[in-house]
Design a protein around this nucleic acid. Sequence first.
DNA 1: GGACACATGTAATCGGTTACATGATTAC
DNA 2: GTAATCATGTAACCGATTACATGTGTCC
Lengths: 185, 185
Amino acid sequence: MSVRSLCLAILSFGDATGYEIRKESTEGRFSYFEDASFGSIYPALARLESEGLVTVREEPQAGKPARKVYSITEAGRTEFINSLCEPQAPDTFKSPFLLIALNAAQLPPEVIRRALERRKAQVQEDLRLLTDTHKDKECPHPGSGWTRDFGIACMSFTLAYLEEHGEALINIAEDAARPLAPAAE
Amino acid sequence: MSVRSLCLAILSFGDATGYEIRKESTEGRFSYFEDASFGSIYPALARLESEGLVTVREEPQAGKPARKVYSITEAGRTEFINSLCEPQAPDTFKSPFLLIALNAAQLPPEVIRRALERRKAQVQEDLRLLTDTHKDKECPHPGSGWTRDFGIACMSFTLAYLEEHGEALINIAEDAARPLAPAAE
DNA sequence: GGACACATGTAATCGGTTACATGATTAC
DNA sequence: GTAATCATGTAACCGATTACATGTGTCC
């Protein structure tokens, strides 16, 4: 999914500035689709505008540069919905944490412990973000409720698993660290 | 994580050719870390060799180009382990499926149904891959058992959730498709 | 007869990140 | 004082993909 489609997707949920789109895509709910930086978002928005898929209105502000608030047009909405009807790329999960887990026996226990804590904190943070979202008005997008519930379920499960089996992973590293004293004390 | 580190990671589990590394990274167990294409793998291996982190031996074959089998060196192993001790990038999950789910009310039910089936098939395939892996000898890498169990647990949960709540998502699309006949049949 | 798996490698291209440029306001 | 948030935009750079080039063996 390109930055272009990402902008369309976010704008289909409401007006936004480039700055806000970046935030949503790196932290907010839309981080599950793609994350992008300013250097790609601003050019993408300019292009979308020249194609008539979005419109801009400038809101001057004292001190700061004028906010450029983008709105999706009917043409933009159509293009977005049509793009969703075409076959999508498969979901992907990339996990530096699992690479550490895979090599637990070759790493110091402290590294494993830190990686585990970090991963748990990350899941907790994602979970918190999702749980807080339910204050949104749910009229225009009933799909967001389903999506949120799915995310909460999967992450709660992941967190519980890490909490229950994390110690076992640390043990692997510890057992490998002193292979000469097998089962003592 | 760069293609360079990916090659090191895969080679730390055993010798491989560029062709095999690509396969492992796009289909195999290593697809959870990074996937890469020939155009990036071959140059990366050449560079690793010039740096002394891997060695090559050529195995001539009749008809086909000679297989160039790469092995990791001690220096390569050290570099790999050290890189794992440094703070890693956070895990990411990118889901075109969830984007479709989010917009369920705006899409034809048929599209939702297809996306759900596709996602379920994908999880089943990943699950199958993971379950088949247990024939590996487990002496040198006890971490692979933990990692596999973790993957199996999360995916089984995901699959069960999709099977249980998939119908609800389709209903969202169906209800939105005929908003004038609320509950009648 | 055609598609696919095996097997390596290069060149053109491209999408996106990082760093730079600018600057007020607010919180610690 | 100094860091963070808000706010836009450009230019250099870079890693990686795509397409190309080459060729055999095997399955359907």
